[in-house]
């Protein structure tokens, strides 16, 4: 078994109610939930694989493909929407050549829609890894993601 998984499991008792926290910690450790890791989780928590998969696919937080080096979370909150988020998303997709929900082949970028990130007063905004990029305009997006941009 992957050493990361051994580490994660050591802080749990393997109870069914711990399933979501276990999935969260495994995802933190591996970056995503691979099929293998979910099988190990099922064994550890003594639940059917279908249950692990069922729970994992229910929640938006869990992903089944690797993240890019720069992981972009597009806020799809109301404040962002009324202040032009769809246009911002389109711009980013144009610059990076990937669509929402995809990871680039070189694993440099990945992008997903998330429910409100809670920075509504700075709308429209996105999260690039841990950093909030706020009050975006198509011009700012160009600065961030064009070939010379800091997030390219």
């Amino acid at each position: 078994m992957n050493n990361n998984l051994v580490d994660v499991f050591s802080s749990f008792d393997g109870k069914e109610e711990e399933l979501i926290p276990i999935l969260q910690k495994v995802q933190n450790a591996l970056g995503f939930l691979s099929d293998d890791s979910m099988e190990e989780i099922a064994r550890f928590a003594r639940v059917p694989m279908s249950k692990v998969f069922g729970v994992a696919t229910f929640y938006a937080q869990f992903r089944f493909t690797p993240k890019g080096e720069k992981h972009i979370m597009l806020c799809r909150g109301t404040a962002c929407h009324v202040k032009g988020a769809p246009r911002i998303q389109e711009e980013i997709e144009n610059h990076l050549g990937i669509k929402e929900g995809e990871t680039s082949k070189d694993l440099k970028h990945s992008m997903e829609n998330v429910a409100c990130i809670g920075a509504c007063s700075l709308a429209p905004c996105i999260l690039v890894n841990e950093t909030v990029e706020a009050n975006l305009t198509p011009q700012k997006v160009e600065k961030l993601f064009s070939s010379k941009g800091k997030n390219k």
């Binding site: 799809r76 909150g77 109301t78 404040a79 962002c80 929407h81 429910a115 409100c116 809670g118 920075a119 509504c120 007063s121």
Partner: peptide, 11 residues
């Protein structure tokens, strides 16, 4: 679990 898009009071 403040899920309402457009709200951040609890945060």
């Amino acid at each position: 679990d403040e899920g309402d898009p457009g709200a951040f009071m609890n945060r």
